[in-house]
């Protein structure tokens, strides 16, 4: 079979709508279940617990009763062009795939030096401080899927945009003699699981895909955009305070997106009412 050169053709990414996100955590559970992520008895040690997809709880910091919280689901950002983690890896165990834009991780090659973790500002990379915990005597190894290999201790793992789902979709497409996969044929486990449909996944390079349209919206932003990591995970929020928390700003640097909503009433504390 002739190997196609898709160099730079696809660029998979996602848009997470923070307004829709309910903070339920299904994405985190779906991710862990899909990717055979180890579950240890103490998961409260957030510095060492593995959560490829992680929810951050943010607050507008205002006093009662004007307090508002929100959640930022944070998968791996799959930074484009020059991800901070890829160039630093000593053993070439992590790479940016130019055909898909996915930043991969090869567990069997990783030596566990953790330089990539130090380089990643999103905390998206997780080290296996312990051996995978799926006790046989409990039978917990029975729900493991063969599509994703469980990791040994001492290596770094991270969100792969459910790369095995991409492979699955590709296999199906090739079996049907197609070269391209459709928008809904390849979505990540978190996208699929979100009960509020807050996550949209697709090819950012394909103008027919919903994500390509969504990223043009003025409410769409990325995390730490100024640092230049070029994440392929975008966020969307109508709330200024949420957008402002996505990056660091010097006083006066943040320009609110002007929005007129119905809530522009005197007693509202909601979108468009935050002064920055």
């Amino acid at each position: 079979m002739k190997k196609e050169n898709d160099h730079g053709k696809h660029k998979y990414g996602m848009v997470i709508d923070i307004d829709k996100c309910t903070g339920c955590g299904t994405c985190m559970v779906a991710c862990a279940a899909e990717n055979n992520v180890s579950v240890r008895a103490d998961q409260s040690d957030k510095e060492r617990t593995i959560t490829w997809m992680r929810l951050y709880k943010i607050s507008n910091g205002k006093p009662f009763p004007h307090t508002e919280i929100s959640y930022i689901p944070r998968p791996c950002m799959h930074c484009d062009h020059h991800p901070p983690c890829v160039s630093v890896c000593v053993a070439t165990a992590t790479k940016l795939d130019f055909n898909t834009g996915i930043v991969s991780q090869i567990y069997t090659r990783c030596i566990g030096c953790r330089y990539c973790q130090a380089a990643c500002p999103y905390g998206a990379r997780y080290f296996n401080w312990w051996d995978a915990y799926f006790p046989k005597k409990k039978g917990l190894d029975r729900y493991l899927t063969p599509e994703v290999s469980p990791r040994m201790r001492g290596v770094v793992e991270k969100c792969t945009f459910c790369h095995h789902r991409f492979m699955r979709a590709k296999t199906v497409a090739y079996a049907e003699d197609r070269r391209e996969i459709e928008e809904d044929e390849y979505i990540t486990a978190c996208t699929e699981a979100c009960p509020a449909q807050a996550i949209t996944f697709g090819d950012l390079n394909n103008p027919d895909h919903e994500v390509a349209r969504l990223i043009k919206h003025p409410f769409t932003f990325r995390l730490l955009e100024r640092i230049g990591t070029e994440p392929k995970v975008y966020y969307h929020s109508s709330r200024d305070w949420v957008r402002k928390l996505a990056d660091n700003f010097l006083p006066g640097e943040y320009t609110p997106v002007v929005n007129q909503t119905w809530a522009e009433e005197e007693w509202s504390t909601k979108p468009g009412r935050d002064e920055f």
């Binding site: 000593v90 053993a91 070439t92 090659r109 990783c110 030596i111 030096c113 953790r114 001492g154 290596v155």
Partner: peptide, 16 residues
Amino acid sequence: DIGQPIRGWFIFWHAN
């Protein structure tokens, strides 16, 4: 310090 000392030589073998 590295998580997989036995594979330490991958630095040289799979050098980036």
